[in-house]
């Protein structure tokens, strides 16, 4: 049984590209197109890991992460923050909000895979 990943991403192309690449690596990928949907799905307990875009409409990634973390049972759900801003402070902000790791977009797929695997293995 391959791990299930929730990808929270509002940009359609990024969503499509990343999900297909992850699926080709054998992961089961579910999609959420905004923060609110992301939080709802993450709370369900179906997922082993969340890839969270930070610049989301309505509820942004930082807020969504906090809400997920606040949900009983999701305290330890691995969350990797993705941000287009290579801005200083984004990483701290993401870690503060409760993310376990951080990567910048456009993703360097191999690196991201490494981070995903590391978190899943640590969890296991």
């Amino acid at each position: 049984m391959m791990p299930k990943i929730l990808l929270v991403e509002d940009n359609e192309m990024n969503r499509d590209m990343l999900s297909r690449r992850l699926e080709r690596k054998g992961y089961e990928v579910a999609i959420a197109v905004d923060g609110a949907e992301g939080v709802e799905k993450a709370k369900s307990g179906e997922f082993d890991l969340v890839l969270m875009d930070m610049s989301l409409p309505e509820i942004d990634g930082w807020e969504a992460t906090r809400q997920v973390r606040a949900h009983p049972g999701a305290e330890k759900l691995p969350i990797i923050a993705l941000t287009a801003h290579a801005m200083a402070g984004d990483r701290e902000k993401a870690l503060e909000a409760g993310c376990d790791d951080y990567d910048t977009k456009p993703v360097e797929f191999k690196r991201l895979l490494g981070k995903i695997e590391a978190l899943l293995n640590a969890d296991a």
């Binding site: 192309m13 990024n14 590209m17 297909r20 690449r21 287009a84 801003h85 977009k105 456009p106 797929f109």
Partner: peptide
């Protein structure tokens, strides 16, 4: 820069993905 990077993400990402395929 941000606006430029969004389409670039697609270019870089898809080219990488197709290449793998």
């Amino acid at each position: 820069s941000h606006e430029l990077r969004t389409p670039l993400n697609a270019i870089i990402g898809y080219s990488e993905m197709i290449q793998e395929e």
